[in-house]
Amino acid sequence: MAAVTATTAGETTIREPGPLQRAGITLAHVLSHPLGAIGFVLVVLIVATALFAPWIAPYSPTAISVKERLADPSLSHLLGTDQLGRDLFSRVIVGTRTAMTVALTALSVSIAIALPLGLIAGYGPRWLDAIMILVFDSVSSLPMIMLGLAVVVLLGPGVSTVILVIVLYSVPSYARLVRTQTLSLKTRDFIKAEQVMNAGTPRILFRHLLPNVIGPLVILACLDISTVITLEAGLSFLGLGVKPQIPSWGNILSDGFAVIRNSAVPVIAGGAPLILATVGFTFFGEALRDALDPKLNPERKP
C-alpha cells in the first residue's frame, strides 16, 4: 500500500512503506478479522508461555512426590498431580515449550531442505524433476505412523527423532509447493530477462525465484504448526515421541489415559492446550494468508 502525500509544491509523491510498516499493515489486516484476532491472541499466549515456561511453572515438571500422587486440583497444584505426584500445571506449561521447540525446529528444517529441492525440481532438467517427484510421492505415500515407527526403531525415541519424522513427512509436500510455484514463475518474463542477461543458475534460483516462492511456503508452514504439534503429541502418546520424563502434551495425555478411571483432569490438562494451539495457529495462519493474498485483498498490490 502506498501512501500519497501532498508536498508543498503541490505535486504528489508516492511513498513506499518500509518493512516494519508493511508488517504493521499485515498485522492490522489479521486483527481486523475476528477469527484472526482470536488466533493472534492464542499464538501470542502460547509463544509467551513457551518462552517463559521455567518462570511460570511453580514446580519442577519432573519432581516426583510419591505421597501427593493423583492429587485433585487445589490451590497448591492448580491441575492436581499425575500418578508420580508431578505437578500437572507445571508439566503443561513446560510441555508448551517442548511442543513449540519441536514444531518450530521441525518446520524450519523442513523449509530449509524443501526450498532448494523444490527450486531444483522446478527449474532443473525434466528428468531430474521426474526422479525427485517420484521420491517425494514415494515418501508421502507411506503412512505417517509407519514412517514414525520405522525411524524410532532405528534411532530410538527422543525429541530429535520426532523432529526427524516430522521433517521426513513435511519435506515432500513443501518441496512440491515450491516446485509448482517455480514451474509457473520460470516462464515469466523477469526470469527470461535474467537468462538473456546471462545470469547464472544459482543467481536465478536464489535471488529471483526464492524470494517469490518463500511467502506461500511460510504461510503453509504456519498453518502446519498445529498439525505438527498434534503429530508430536500423537507420537509421544504412542510412546514413539519424546521420552516419558520430558513433559509434553502427548506424554501428559498418555499418562492421563492410564488413570482416566480415577480422574479426567490429566487427560483434559493434556488435551486442552493441544486444542487451543491447533485452533490458534490455524486461525492465525488463515488470517495471515488472507492478509497477504493480493487477490483477496485488493488494496494491497503484489
Partner: peptide, 29 residues
C-alpha cells in the same frame, strides 16, 4: 545483446527495486 520485452513491467522481478534491477546486468557481468 539486450532484450526489451513487450510488457516491460513483467520483465522486472516484482520483489526488487527498480534501481537494483537496472544494476543487475553490471552485477552479473
Amino acid at each position: 545483446a539486450a532484450l526489451l520485452f513487450q510488457d516491460p513491467l513483467s520483465s522486472f522481478n516484482p520483489r526488487q527495486r527498480i534501481g537494483a534491477m537496472i544494476a543487475e546486468p553490471r552485477r552479473i557481468a
